[in-house]
């Protein structure tokens, strides 16, 4: 496998330098940018494999970057990075198309792992994101009322989310549920897809309450 090409989009120089120092080597950092406009420009030029994207940035935030780029270049994967704990921003950026969310205090090794996962097309859920997801899909609804698969998590997906929220790594989740890591990845990706595509009433309302739409 060739070295992954990564871009770091964040408005704090110190953070960019820090991340660069931590991940340079195993992956190649091909671009940096500090606001939405310049980010869209360098990303269109370099088309990296994975973009580490800050949630809050001048010009409309990470959401805006994804909005402008995702349609034209779906092959560029986004991994959101943030210090913000605001659920609406995190879910918002996932719904826009990011394939994962991690907090900025993540260790270098974990970040590299997350980058590789996202590049491979899988999703990266931190415990916090898993918590938000469970929150968003919370509430028991009668199965008869649901005709759309997208609108609820399966019991298995819920279990996986719960374990991730409890701090289990994918490998540990797999062991706990007696399934393969690949299956865990499939479940997580499917949750991501539901999160992005679901128009579930509760999710919409939840998003609305948090002024997401």
């Amino acid at each position: 496998m060739s070295t992954l090409r990564v871009a770091i989009i964040d408005d704090h120089v110190m953070f960019r330098t820090g991340v660069r120092a931590e991940i340079e080597g195993p992956v190649e950092v091909v671009a940096e940018a500090e606001d939405v406009d310049s980010a869209v420009k360098v990303l269109t030029e370099t088309l990296p494999d994975v973009v580490l994207l800050d949630v809050h940035m001048p010009g409309g935030g990470g959401l805006e970057v994804i909005r402008r780029l995702h349609q034209r270049h779906p092959e560029v994967k986004f991994l959101a990075l943030s210090v913000s704990d605001a659920a609406e921003d995190v879910i918002g950026i996932i719904r826009a198309g990011a394939r994962g969310y991690v907090t900025k205090n993540i260790s270098g090794a974990e970040l590299l792992d997350a980058i590789a996962r996202v590049a491979a097309g899988d999703a990266v859920f931190s415990p916090r994101l898993a918590g938000f997801v469970l929150d968003a899909f919370a509430g028991t609804i009668e199965i008869a009322q649901v005709d759309e698969d997208l609108d609820r998590l399966t019991e298995r997906e819920r279990e996986v989310m719960r374990l991730i929220a409890r701090g289990y790594a994918y490998k540990e989740v797999a062991k706990e549920l007696f399934i393969s890591v690949k299956t865990v990845e499939t479940h997580v990706s499917s949750v991501l897809r539901k999160l992005q595509l679901s128009s579930r009433h509760e999710l919409t309302r939840w998003a609305n309450d948090r002024r997401l739409i």
Binding site: D11, V55, H56, M57, P58, G59, G60, G61, L63, E64, R67, S84, A86, D89, G92, R211, L212, I213
Partner: peptide, 20 residues
């Protein structure tokens, strides 16, 4: 005007996040 936590409010004002 929706009430936001100070951090979010300032981020919104400075255009760091995409508002509705």
């Amino acid at each position: 005007r929706p009430d936001l936590a100070p951090g979010l409010e300032s981020a919104t004002r400075r255009g760091l996040r995409t508002g509705s």
